[in-house]
């Protein structure tokens, strides 16, 4: 499937590895306030999202893929306005879905600068 959102990873804050170990990936589009740098993976989208995220869609970061399970109610607004998504990886069936979060199944490592990030409808 053709991605509806494409972006390039610019940099990852020093705490992103710890956060990913805890199953949380915080994405923000450049530029962001200094306060957010340490916890965020900053990327540069090529354009606004052409579709809304939905369960079953696939998030690809570099050569790693995760499938979206649940999408919070303001997650799509955040993506459109700030390039901001918080991905909770394998949070468990009964974990509460925060409004800005998406839940996904599968592991992700700290993305390297220059890696490609895409969102696409599931195949």
């Amino acid at each position: 499937m053709t991605p509806y959102y494409e972006s390039t990873i610019l940099r990852s804050g020093e705490e992103t590895a710890d956060l990913l170990a805890g199953g949380v990936l915080i994405l923000y589009a450049d530029p962001i306030p200094d306060a957010l740098e340490s916890v965020s993976v900053v990327h540069s989208p090529s354009g606004p999202p052409a579709a809304k995220m939905e369960p079953g869609h696939v998030l690809t970061v570099g050569d790693q893929q995760v499938r979206l399970v649940r999408v919070g109610e303001i997650a799509n607004d955040n993506l459109a306005s700030l390039g901001h998504v918080v991905v909770y990886l394998d949070p468990g069936e009964d974990a509460a879905l925060l409004p800005g979060a998406v839940h996904a199944s599968g592991p992700l490592g700290v993305p390297a600068a220059g890696a490609t990030l895409t969102l696409a409808a599931g195949s």
Binding site: Y28, A35, V39, S40, G72, H84, P99, A101
Partner: peptide
Amino acid sequence: CGGTARIGV
């Protein structure tokens, strides 16, 4: 904030 990042930093 939708509950994760800005709410904490």
